[in-house]
Amino acid sequence: MATPSDIKKGIVLRENGELWVVTEFQHVNPGKGAAFVRCRVKNAKTGKTLEKTIKMSESIDVVEVEYRNMQYLYHDATGYTFMDRDTYEQVTMSDDDVSDQAKFLKEGLELMISTHEGKPIALQLPRKMTFKVIETMPAVKGDTASGNVTKEAKTDGGFIIHVPIFISEGEDVIVNTDTAEYVERA
């Protein structure tokens, strides 16, 4: 048995025979209450999502999943298709299953996918990925005077992140795929 402190994105919990993938989690200490972990979980079978709150002192049943080396191939009406780099087997995950992480997928990207009984459950993207800034405002002199000034930048992944003012168009930046935040210049 594991404890709620082992909870992270992508792990799979078993409860009453059902499997739930943790898609988000947060530690919460309500005023005058015990410590809890609040998770958003998705039912591995039905796709239904809900919020679950687990007390820190509880034990939880974490399901062993198999991590497979995959490569992202393409997206079409059926969803996102990946290929197992060891067996060349192809698997497809729906748009809903990939959800927010889709923006980080580039053709040919190598990543891990956790599977349970052969069924893909969750993507494990590289924690840091490099993207090119394709659109951002040029920096103006004096902007940095007041400290941590950031601006919006559009990346070649099509998503927008906040970058420091000194980053210009055409530069490569490293993005944290857990938080979708700028880390540093590539």
């Binding site: 409860e15 919460v28 809890f36 679950k52 687990i54 002192s57 939880i60």
Partner: peptide
């Protein structure tokens, strides 16, 4: 769909619903 542990007090159970469905 919230878990119920044997040692959960009434307050703990209150918080499981409250933190999942109400507080946010």
């Amino acid at each position: 769909n919230q878990s119920v542990a044997l040692d959960d007090s009434w307050d703990d159970l209150f918080f499981k619903i409250f933190l999942s469905e109400i507080e946010p």
